[in-house]
C-alpha cells in the first residue's frame, strides 16, 4: 500500500494538562497534507475524543495514524481497565467518568458515540483489565449532504 503519511503518538493516561495536545499536532499534520476541511474536522474530533478517553480512563495508549490516497486510518490501543459492556458504553449519556473528567467539561457519555458518528467504519475490541482497541476508517471522499 502506498502511504501518504504514517505516524504514532504516545498518550499518557491521567495527564490532563496535555489533553488534546497530540490531537492538535495531528490536525496540523493533516492540514499540511491538504485533507479537505470536513474530513479534517471529523478526523480531528475522532482523534481528540480518543486521546481524551486514554487520558481519562487508561494507563497509557498509542494513537496510530495512517493516511492513504483515499482513506484515513486511525487505530487506538490502550492499556487499562477495558470496557465491560461495549454496547452500553456506546449509549449516549452512559459514562463512568470521575469528577476530575467532569470538571473539565467532559465525561458526559458522548465520546464513543461521537467517534462513531464522525467515522465511516469503527470497530471496538476490549478486554477487561487489559485494554481497548479502536480501529477507525474515515474515507477522504466527502459524504453526501
Amino acid at each position: 500500500m502506498d502511504w501518504a503519511y504514517q505516524s504514532s503518538f504516545s498518550i499518557e493516561g491521567g495527564n490532563f494538562e496535555n489533553a488534546g495536545k497530540a490531537s492538535i499536532e495531528i490536525k496540523k499534520i493533516l492540514k499540511n497534507l491538504k485533507i479537505s476541511d470536513e474530513i479534517l474536522r471529523r478526523t480531528a474530533i475522532v482523534v481528540y475524543e480518543s486521546e481524551l478517553n486514554i487520558i481519562s480512563y487508561a494507563d497509557q495508549g498509542v494513537i496510530n495514524l495512517s493516511v492513504t490516497g483515499d482513506k484515513i486510518l486511525i487505530s487506538v490501543d490502550d492499556v487499562g481497565p477495558g470496557i465491560e459492556d461495549i454496547e452500553l458504553a456506546m449509549q449516549e449519556g452512559y459514562s463512568t467518568a470521575t469528577d476530575r473528567i467532569r470538571e473539565m467539561g467532559f465525561g458526559a457519555g458522548m465520546g464513543l458515540l461521537n467517534i462513531k458518528n464522525c467515522s465511516d467504519e469503527l470497530q471496538i475490541f476490549s478486554e477487561v483489565n487489559k485494554g481497548t482497541h479502536l480501529s477507525i476508517i474515515i474515507n477522504r471522499m466527502e459524504r453526501e449532504s
Binding site: 488534546g20 492538535i24 490536525k27 480531528a44 474530533i45 481528540y48 473539565m104 467539561g105
Partner: peptide
C-alpha cells in the same frame, strides 16, 4: 465549524476544543 463557542468554562481544554472544531 466556524461557530462562536459561548461557555462559562475557563479551563485550557476549552481552547483545545475550540481549535479542534
Amino acid at each position: 465549524p466556524g461557530s462562536l463557542i459561548i461557555t462559562g468554562l475557563t479551563i485550557h481544554q476549552v481552547v483545545r476544543t475550540a481549535s479542534i472544531l
